[in-house]
Computed example of a mutant assay.
Amino acid sequence: MSTLDGTETKNIKKFTELFCGLEHCTKIDQKQKIIEINEIIDEMNVEEFDSVFTGELFNIMHKIIEEKKISIENALVLLKHVGYCKVLKNIWSLFFEESSLNERLEELIIEEEKKKEEKRNEKLLIDLCECYISLNYLLLPEIVSICVPCLLKVAMRKEENEEIQKEVEMALLALSCIDEFEFYGQELHLNEIKEIIKYHQEHRNLTHLSYLSAWRLLVNRLWVDNCLEEVIVNELHFGREAAGEIEDLSKCVDWRRKEENEKRRKESKEELLLKKWLDEVGICASECKLWNEGFAGLIGIIAQVHRAAKDNHREISEKCIFIIVLSVEKRAVKLDDLLKRGAVNAILEEI
């Protein structure tokens, strides 16, 4: 396993060493090694991640699972983390759908779902569904129809302890991928998603990633369902909420850090989430005809982020300018507000 230029990095070398040792140790030792592997995955940049997680690696995982050299439970802990990082880091393809392991996950999901409720292993089914959706780019509608109600049940849990919140985060992250791949035939479950968002607005119980994922479930549907505009803009106050999230995240970014090769630089979680929020705002700016006073504040925050990002974080800066230009073209925000909040100056600086 090597990077694109053929040089093996410290992260890749350590990952390979630990991964190759999984089949030669006890179940308890495997758990510890997987914890270490997941920590290494967190440290990987996009280039390292791409070079490690290939169809060949997933085929090897399938082989050692079938040979009972690693338990399915331990394998799923690793696969869930790979899927989590893939979505968070915007990795476009792992070729997981071409692997024998993908076919095996589909079989296991169907087998588990067919069991009578008292015999079903709910934890196993949840883990299988999360791995299948987060790792895949070719989701089968019949599998998705099993996964959606299963994961929504997890996503709607309201306990605020850390373990439950991690489960909620992973379930929402997986669910937010489904619309991204245009499985629009699936029921939206609008009432459940609204409940998750409204409860957070009142109690602030979700992580930043969980809350973003819940919004993605709605906003990404705007491409095909403009009827959601009223819910998104006026009922759930997207402009106000996005402004608050973007402002909070922007305070955690090191804006002085100089831009490097995009694939080689390890971005902070706050940077990754900030970019994802800007993408959702961009969809709203493109698709919404309804705007309210919350968007004036949102555009002001985005102008501030642009000014902070323009020297060393060009991708973030460009996303901000795209949104500001769209809001001007659509006259979504009054000219006085654009001038007052520095949005017009941000555009002029780019000309």
Rank of each mutant, 00 (worst) to 15 (best):
K116I: 13
E122N: 14
S327K: 02
L4D: 14
E167R: 13
F295M: 02
L222N: 02
I301P: 00
H189Q: 13
H189D: 08
G297K: 04
T54W: 03
G294H: 05
E159V: 10
E113W: 14
E66H: 14
A346K: 03
D337N: 09
G55L: 09
L335P: 08
K13Y: 12
D279T: 08
K68F: 06
V305D: 00
R314P: 06
R256F: 08
L57M: 10
N234C: 02
N102G: 12
I146W: 02
E247R: 03
D248F: 08
I60A: 15
A303K: 00
L298I: 02
T207F: 06
K198E: 13
N74E: 14
L175G: 01
L139H: 01
K198V: 11
C147H: 01
W215V: 00
L128P: 04
E47H: 05
L140F: 15
T207I: 04
A309V: 01
N59L: 06
E122D: 14
C150S: 09
I91A: 11
K123I: 11
H81S: 05
D225N: 09
Q165L: 07
E98Y: 10
L274G: 04
H62A: 14
V77M: 15
Y84A: 07
L4Y: 12
C25E: 12
F96N: 06
I34W: 07
K116A: 11
G21K: 13
R264T: 12
I301A: 03
V77D: 10
E280L: 03
E107C: 11
Q32I: 14
E287L: 02
C85T: 14
A309Y: 00
I324G: 01
R341I: 03
A303F: 08
F95W: 06
K158A: 04
E315Q: 11
I60S: 14
I64C: 05
D127N: 12
R314W: 11
W255D: 05
K158M: 07
R204G: 05
I197N: 00
E142L: 11
D179H: 09
E73T: 14
